[in-house]
Amino acid sequence: MRKTLSKIAIGIESTAHTAGVGLITSEGKILSNQRALYVPKEGGIHPREAANHHSEKLPDLFKSALEEAKLTPTDISLVSYARGPGLGPCLRTGATAARAFAYYHDIPLLGVNHCVAHLEIGILEGATDPVLLYLSGANTQVIAYAAGRYRVFGETIDIGIGNGLDKFAREVGMGFPGGPKLEKIAEGDVLLDLPYSVKGMDLAFSGLMTAAKQKLDSGHSLASVAYSIQETAFAMSCEVSERALAHTGKKELVLGGGVACNSRLREMADIMTKERGVKCFVPERALCVDNGVMIAWLGLQMMGADYNITEKDNEVDQKYRTDMVEVTWR
């Protein structure tokens, strides 16, 4: 029972490094996608520093999003924000900004699941019932729809792939974010022997990153170590997606998350799906990374299916699991 009237939603993303504000119509037309990335001065993410960054940037992001879309708040019929999962301080900052905007302009407010939003972007790209390979900093999951929920079929049992890449990059003195920097220097054709850790549809990266560091220390070039990390970690990721496709019998793959911006990963996923006779949907990079558009889009999907907003829907939940969301809109 989709409502037919065109609606516009604003989405606020702030689960980790990215503060984002996006605007999209219920037909799927993206009107603006504004983002600001928090870069830690040293080490990994500091949740409070990141939250400060977001609260500083969000007002400007709201403003530039509305300007780019040539809209005023009265044109907007839904404020959607990422309720979780994510870092507490970051989530609260995003939710506070969303609440303030919604209350001030008297617009309905809805907190949505960040991971599900990554998947729904694949549906915007034309997929109907996909398996999502979701590779970001903290999250590494294979997700698909089954019996009323999006379910996690496989995931990392230690660290997220992106955090693994970032940590390795940091240890060898490269800045944040490490993934794209490693991609740039990755070169070679000789594969170094690194642990390939696939357990059913689950995977593990921590042993791989440790072994990679040892290869470097034992004299292999950074370029060839980076190359071998990519070849191994991405092949593992493609294999678990393939296993999920086989297990569920689904015929579509969607890529999501920041690491899905990597060209070699995209190439591997493309080959894998072609070999299996499965369709591959690769959202443009600005929609793979964390962004406000996907948050707005998911909010619209839920409202389009007459979702009933309750008090819970303006809270945050750091551990908001993918399979806690009851999928009523499909």
């Binding site: 089954a146 996690v152 357990k199 689950d202 297990h247 399979d323």
Partner: peptide, 16 residues
């Protein structure tokens, strides 16, 4: 880990 893989496939595919 074997148990987990099995339970997960059960949970994700036979949640009823």
């Amino acid at each position: 880990s074997d148990l987990r893989v099995f339970l997960e496939s059960l949970d994700s595919h036979h949640s009823e």
